[in-house]
């Protein structure tokens, strides 16, 4: 069996295991057999299909979206520390989402999709601004410059959100919990809300997998190799923003998934984007399902925000990558 095939097999097995664990473990343990045979225990099947399954699927979609967006951003910026969270893109999306709720914005024809669409626009604007500012500071767009710019923007956007929340009084206080990232109590409508965007965004990025490979060697080199750099860049930015925006719209800002998953994927299976992108998608889903499982069981019956768990894993990985990049020569 060749290496990519093995990689997909292992990743899919992990994802399958995560899903089974996600739907069966909890305050009410449920036997996996219920998945195939609901008639064994109607009440358990009800919990599984109406409460746990949407939550697991949503966690999977959010994880997949953030991970594949992170992988694409890293390739585009040639920056292993880039991810929607560290670039401030998640904050931009969150501001979009909070604004939608705060002003009660509703765009005709979009209906349910108003929230994710405005989040996406917030994400895209933030991404373009961060990149523009970083380029203004340092033409070579060094790793640290880009991340620092991301921090500046997410702090600023965070303060805007805090202001809006303070102004609304009690009704939006729940947003604070949501801001730290959570996929609880969402149900199937939220799955319907993000699914099309996650699929479209991921497909767009996957179309640009070869361009991403070329752009890892620099934009100039990519142009020499025949890549239409401007178009590819724009497509990847839009794809990444769609994914980030839709993920944030349903789950708030969950950090570091887009950093940890592509990094681990590259470490184990190499840095060819033709495989890094789909593998990040699968593994991102699996990771977030497991993180969500831990978040809701570790100090049961209290639930931790999922962002706490991802940051707990993600920050040390961030530190490790930073250390290796700076001390490891190249």
């Amino acid at each position: 069996m060749n290496k990519p095939a093995l990689a997909y097999l292992v990743s899919l097995i992990l994802l399958g295991g995560a899903v089974v664990l996600g739907v069966t473990v909890g305050t009410v343990p449920i036997s996996p057999a219920i998945i195939w045979n609901p008639s064994l225990d109607e009440a358990a099947a009800n919990i599984l299909w109406n409460i746990r399954m949407p939550r697991v699927v949503l966690a999977g979609l959010v994880g997949a979206a953030l991970a594949i967006a992170g992988a694409a951003f890293q390739g585009l910026l040639k920056n292993p520390l880039a991810d929607p969270y560290t670039l401030g893109v998640s904050s931009g999306a969150a501001v979009g989402a909070v604004m939608t709720l705060f002003f009660g914005i509703s765009i005709p024809f979009l209906g349910l999709f108003t929230l994710p669409v405005i989040s996406m626009i917030g994400a895209l604007i933030t991404m373009l601004t961060v990149m523009g500012f970083a380029r203004l500071v340092d033409r070579s767009m060094k790793m640290e410059t880009v991340i620092l710019t991301g921090i500046i923007f997410s702090s600023f956007l965070g303060s805007i959100m805090s202001l809006m929340i303070a102004l609304t009084g009690e009704e939006l206080r729940q947003i604070i919990g949501w801001l730290l990232g959570s996929v609880s109590m969402r149900g199937w409508p939220y799955v319907q809300m993000v699914l099309p965007f996650v699929l479209i965004g991921s497909f767009v990025l996957w179309l640009y997998r070869r361009e991403l490979n070329a752009m890892l060697f620099g934009e100039e080199r990519a142009q020499h190799l025949g890549v239409d750099v401007k178009r590819s860049k724009m497509a990847i930015l839009i794809g990444g923003s769609v994914l980030t925006g839709s993920a944030v719209a349903v789950s708030g800002t969950i950090g570091f998934v887009g950093l940890v998953v592509p990094h681990m994927t590259r470490l184990v299976w190499g840095s060819d984007h033709r495989h890094v992108l789909p593998l990040s998608f699968i593994n991102g889903a699996a990771l977030l399902i497991v993180c969500d499982l831990v978040a809701r069981t570790i100090i049961s019956p209290t639930e931790l925000p999922i962002g706490v768990i991802t940051a707990f894993i993600g920050a040390p990985v961030f530190a490790f990558i930073f250390f290796r990049q700076r001390r490891g020569g190249l």
């Binding site: 920056n79 292993p80 490979n213 890892l216 100039e220 840095s271 190249l330």
Partner: peptide, 15 residues
């Protein structure tokens, strides 16, 4: 082009 440093690892074949 003139040689540049890279942030990610590639094999010779991939390159």
């Amino acid at each position: 082009p003139q040689l540049h440093a890279h942030a990610f690892s590639h094999t010779v074949r991939e390159t």
